[in-house]
Structures are given as C-alpha cells and as structure tokens.
Simulated assay, not measured.
Amino acid sequence: MAITAKQVKELREKTGAGMMDCKKALTANDGDIAKAIDWLREKGIAKAAKKEGRIAAEGLTRVAVSGNTAVLFEVNSETDFVSKNEQFLSLLDKIQAAVLANKPADEKAALELSTEEGTISDLITNATATIGEKISLRRVQVVTKEDNQFFGSYMHMGGKISALVVLSGKEDATVAKNLAMQVASMSPSYVSQKDIPAEIVEHERQLQLSMMQQDPKMANKPEKVLEGILKGKVDKHFKDQCLVEQEYIFGEKQKVSQFLKESQADVVSFVRYAAGEGIEKREENFAEEVMAQIKG
C-alpha cells in the first residue's frame, strides 16, 4: 500500500525516528502505526525520542572553506567519547558538505537541508538512535569574503575549538593560519577597540570612574590627569579582548597589530567556536549514573 506523508509525520512525532526509517517501518507493517512503532523499537530506532531531555554539552566544532565561502558549525553530544565515534565524524562530514553547498541562514535552515540519506535533521535523529546519545546541531555560521580578501582557518584538537579569520592585504597562507591560531588560543571578542559597542565602553568607563573616586590616591589630582588615568584603565581592561592589541603568540613581545603591519595585512573579521561553551553542564553522581544505566 502507498504510505502517505501524513502517516510518516505522525510516526516521526511519536518516535523521534528519521523520515526514511519511518517510511520503511510503515511499509513493512502495511501502514499500521502501532506495529510500525514496535518495529522501530525492536531495531532500537525509536529510542531517539527519549533522549530529548538530556543535556548535550560535549561534541565538536568544524570550520571549512570553499572558494569565497567558509562555514563554522557545532554538533553536540552528551559525552566526550562520542566525538571519536566514526558515525559521529561521518555525520559532521555530511553536515559540512551540505552547509557549504547550500549556505543556510541559521541552524534551523541547516536542519532542513537535503542529503542522499534524508534531511540533516533525519541524519541527526538516526545518529542519536544508533549511537545512544542525544546529538544536536547547535549553531551554524556562513562567512563570505571578497575576491581581494583571504581566509585563515584552524581547528584545535580535532575541532574542540575552530577559528576563522578574514584578512585583506598581501595574501599569505602562513599569516592567515597564524592569525586563526591566535583567535583560537586567545579568544578575543573584538578586532579592535573601535568595534566595541559604545554602551559597553561607557559601562566600563563608569565602573572605573567609580573605583577611582573611592581611591584616596586619586584625591587632589588635576582633572586632566584624572581623565588620562581613566582612559588608560579603560584601554587596559579591553586590551586582551581586542585581537590587534593582544600579544602575538608567535612573536617575542610583539603585538598582533605589529605583526599585521609587517605582513602588510589587516583583519576584517573573525569567528571562534568552542565546543560546549556557554552550555550549563549537569553535574551527576557517578554511582547514581551507573545504577541508572543498569536499571535502564
């Protein structure tokens, strides 16, 4: 019998299994939803839906470049062990190919991209079922450059951290990679101080001013001197947050700005992803976790 899209959708919602697996299950059971659910459960596919409540705070990031396009994305898992799993790594390869080819606007659009094995969402659901951990696509960013610009990319520890820089000026692959390594290592927030939002600078200025007003050493100093000290304190606070003001990790007491000048290059932008950053990891008692697995 013919299987309808409505039947596939219903089975997917009830089991969390991928579209292709749902269609196979329905075909094998003449469209009977209840029997199809049992069929999926017997094959271990339906268990994916049970893992939605878990916290996926591990995983890997990726950065890939093709012509004037680069992509960064992060796929999370529950444990660090999964990042070495061949199926998990294969999943990242498929996501990479799809996002590079289609340039999705965000992770929601990326999940809807088609591959030979179904959508990215299907692949993730199937991987969740097969691997036995919650797998999720957390974020995706597409970066494009002009013909007169060049990319630098770097992945640390197989993708625990991924960094991308866009540069202009004299193209040099070593310079580009070194700058990407700088971003990965030193985690700047801005290219330079001119990129910091005015309200953030003003907030820091008021904070430093308040501390200075409480400092007896600042009493009776001329207004002009106090203004200079205040500016110095604000600049110092933001120094390590700005890429060009950081100490260059491959140079002896050299700033990134000096290295760029010597290399006849400028940083246009950068992106840095670290796997699991910002995700609150649930602390669990190891003994309780083992017992939960035995009972499960």
Rank of each mutant, 00 (worst) to 15 (best):
R272V: 01
I196F: 08
A184R: 05
M155Y: 04
Q87A: 10
Q293I: 09
Q214N: 14
V166E: 09
R272N: 01
K239Y: 00
D240W: 00
S263V: 02
M19R: 07
M155D: 14
A109C: 10
A5I: 13
Q141M: 08
K281A: 14
H156E: 11
H237N: 03
L164T: 04
A163S: 10
Q182N: 05
L137T: 13
I249N: 02
S192F: 01
S83W: 05
K94Y: 08
D32C: 06
N178G: 00
G152H: 06
D235H: 06
L243P: 02
L123A: 07
E289K: 15
L123D: 11
V82I: 12
F88A: 10
E284W: 11
V175R: 04
E52L: 12
V140R: 06
A163I: 02
T15H: 08
N148K: 13
L164W: 04
S187M: 03
E202K: 08
L167R: 10
K255Y: 01
K35Q: 09
A173P: 15
G169N: 04
A129E: 03
D122G: 08
F286L: 13
R54P: 12
E86G: 08
N102H: 09
K177Q: 15
Q213W: 02
K145N: 04
D172H: 03
D266L: 08
A173Y: 00
A17L: 13
I279G: 09
A184Q: 08
Q264F: 03
K23T: 04
M291V: 13
V165T: 09
A275V: 11
A64Q: 08
E10N: 08
K255E: 06
E202V: 01
M1Q: 12
P104N: 12
